[in-house]
Amino acid sequence: MPVIKVNNRGVHIQELNKGSAETVLLVHGMFSNLSVYYFNIAPVLAKEFHVLMYDLKSHGMSEKVVKGYDLESMTGDLLALMDELGLDRVHLAGYSFGGLIALKMASRFPDRVKKLAVIEAPDPNDDKTRDIIDDYSREFLEHYVENFTDTTKVKMGKRQMERNHRMYEYLFYETSIKKDMLLEREFFGSEEIDGIGQETLLLYGAGSNCLGAGRLLKQKIKGAQLLEVPGDHNIPIQEPVLIGNLLDNFFKHG
């Protein structure tokens, strides 16, 4: 289980098809981990590409960190990871919060990102996104697990629930994540988004409450292609092979 040191912090990474000429780097979402890609999406991409997945700070098996959840810090972490692994340029894909990191990365370090794929990145100015952070409670988590995860068919057991609850509590009450996210409210309205020059693919669930964010990004990023996939915000779990194939085709052919 490779946990490498990046800026003196433990970062859990997984790689497939190491040694292939081109790399696809996959960024997961908030409260998730690299497993969202590991089982189906990464193996599809690994037929052609070197695939790198990593756990964001305090997520999955990466080290817990109290500060630095704003997009500037998160992209700084990603750049340091690429430097540590000697990766000059990559195709970049991010899901949900990871999609925001991917957008910021493409804008901030355009020479390091070849093509950009954004899956279900929410608009940080959307109340629904912020409410998830504001309304958190154990009752909320139980409600979430009972109802929201229905669409992914995944039910958590008691030990899993406790683990997840500990992660939520840590992130909400002991880190700056809440404060840092609120500072990103204007991100979609910023010139940074307008200036993204990479070939960009936007993948959103046809029934997702984030679809409006996808449409907004399509308007703002020149030449961006928006594809609606059957499902909701959980499309990487609901349609992993389809997502893998769409990414594979985009990174190969555009």
């Binding site: 289980m1 997984q14 981990n33 690299l34 497993s35 969202v36 590991y38 089982f39 756990d55 999955g60 098996m61 958590m156 057991g157 008691k158 030990r159 899993q160 683990r163 997840n164």
Partner: peptide, 10 residues
């Protein structure tokens, strides 16, 4: 076994 996804990765 109540493994979550990251444990199944491990």
């Amino acid at each position: 076994l109540e493994m979550d996804s990251i444990e199944i990765v491990s």
